[in-house]
Write a protein that binds this DNA or RNA. Structure first.
Lengths: 339, 339
DNA sequence: GTGAAAGCGCTAACAT
DNA sequence: ATGTTAGCGCTTTCAC
């Protein structure tokens, strides 16, 4: 019960293996009578070509590797869908790997993908330093960094504007009449944490609002920290009338805190979050958020990768920055706003 | 700038390729002096073994394929994490594929995975008939079906008890004092839709409650249907005091409807949903749900697969059914329940 | 302990 | 239009 090989097909169809190969790969130049015979043999044996063998001689696998840091964060699946769909169109197969935010696992995965000879790699790294990409770069395997930058190598990159998004969010709050605006920012040593804070400050500056230190809270991008920062904000003598949370988990934590302490969303306090939440519409009142086009991010990433994989010369590296979009729902304007 | 091969290493270390192979594969029986030389050559060239070539000879890839129907449904990533983690422990690499609930894509994916010679397949199928698995079965590639059964072939299967979960949910409602209990069930021709209804009926019967036809609504597992069914329930002359929704999306729809029509959760109506929601705790009052241990499901699936992959004989096929767990929060007891 | 060589299944010259 | 064959990079007997 050995798997049938091209040879078995050849013998059954009474042709050479080369002919079978030509039929399988639709290269044409085969008498239709012969082709028919071959096709029949293929069916009869339920022959499935061995991609490993093919890849060995062709020196390409038509496979790309995708490494994401957290498959349980709802953004990444969206990103992956975008990549996969685009890849499928061009006949590429996607191997998805999850590093779990662990640089060690990420390095291993890179090794394994390299061993498996992927034609290209799309990565949202767990370690922006990027030295783990050394072997990839060395072998001149096309890479594109998505959503997070690689610092020490020059690679194609596609990001969503953090500064821009935070700026828009904050401006929206300002335009709704808020002046006492708080931010729950992320760790300032991370790029997104830092950049989103920059956008926040920029908007305030532009509208001549002063940055009130009391209104600047720093979380760690996790739910619990959003929860705690919100409570602290509430305890202030003069609490803010609006909060900008720097990521989805902290928004969630903030929401929990609001509910718990009875700080009424949309009446006593406005809220805008960075990154959408699947239940944002369901919150009462529906939550306004900065939404990142993850799917398009994925599409763009693959397109970039594809360009690299198919061009011979060394293309100059590109950096794309997509614009986030603000989804205005109802959590920012207060029913009875303090002016 | 060709990729270095085992031959390059052999030449540089002044040994045969066989020796290099032995070193790479840690087979021992090499003089440590020699081994050192080889290791140095490997580093110097940054040699990475070619898994394709190895797999060709060994006739195994140490790779398993995983096909899930919807990467954007939060359950599946959890399932995948379970599989991956377990696989990693045993030295297997996971290729994750997303069929998008399309039987056609699923068939293609199976073909592609077969071409790539995966050692085993774990699948949550988009087509319970299962004929698409024919080629897999034929080649005696180990398969395990997870979360959804395969009808026309006998394969290892691991599921979560639908009847059991629905039964527990309903019983919980009954024990909270509810007698007028509605169900928003799924399509009765789908296994989960049907089984969850069975569990519902069983609980009623056991507590001598009659099934009131007016309280049986049928949705299609999508949000909108949960929304609509809830509204219908509300319009009844004698609305139920509790609702059991048969899946997460319909729970979400139900929740939206409740909010919209002002049917107050936890006061006027109790709710228990099948499947957890990431924001269930955040709902006011927090939502009680039937939760499926997706992660364990994944672990069990891989264990089963592993057993098949490593045993020589044809093992009898197994069916595991894991128990769901009911996460009691606060949406089922009414503050002022009508008795 | 180490090497020589066959061969995994396929493709792509090169022949015919 | 089709066949012959070298060789992709590796592992694994079988020798020595």
């Amino acid at each position: 019960m050995r798997k049938p090989t091209i040879k078995d097909v050849a013998i059954l169809a009474n042709v050479s293996t080369a002919t079978v190969s030509r039929v399988v790969n639709r290269q044409g130049g085969i008498k239709s009578k012969t082709e028919e015979r071959v096709q029949k043999a293929i069916e009869q044996l339920s022959y499935i070509p061995n991609a490993l063998a093919r890849s060995m001689v062709r020196k390409q696998t038509n496979t790309i590797g995708v490494i994401i840091p957290d498959i349980n964060n709802p953004f990444f699946p969206l990103l992956v869908s975008g990549i996969e769909q685009q890849a499928r169109k061009k006949g590429y197969f996607t191997i998805l790997c999850n590093s779990n935010e662990s640089p060690e696992i990420e390095s291993e995965l890179i090794q394994v993908l390299l061993e498996r000879s992927v034609d290209g790699l799309i990565i949202t790294t767990a370690d922006e330093g990027g030295y783990q990409l050394q072997p990839v770069i060395e072998r001149m395997i096309p890479v594109v960094a998505v959503d997070r930058q690689i610092k020490n190598f020059e690679v194609d990159t596609v990001l969503v504007g953090n500064v821009d998004g935070a700026y828009q969010a904050t401006r929206h709050l300002i335009l709704q009449g808020h002046t006492k605006i708080a931010i729950i920012r992320g760790p300032q040593k991370t790029t997104p944490g830092y950049e989103r804070f920059v956008g926040f400050q920029r908007a305030l500056a532009e509208y001549n609002l002063e940055l009130d230190e009391r209104y600047v809270m720093e979380g760690d991008f996790r739910e619990q920290s959003g929860y705690e920062c919100t409570k602290k904000l509430f305890k202030l003598n003069e609490p803010p009338t609006a909060i900008f949370t720097s990521n989805n988990l902290m928004t969630l934590g903030c929401l929990k805190a609001l509910t718990e302490i009875g700080w009424i969303l949309g009446e006593q306090v406005g809220l805008i979050g960075f990154d959408d939440l699947d239940f944002a519409e369901f919150v009462n009142p529906p939550l306004t958020v900065v939404s990142r086009p993850m799917r398009q991010l994925g599409e763009a990433a693959f397109d970039l990768l594809y360009a690299q994989m198919t061009s011979q010369e060394d293309r100059p590296k590109r950096h794309y920055v997509l614009s986030p979009e603000i989804k205005i729902r109802q959590s920012c304007s207060l029913k009875s706003p303090k002016q």
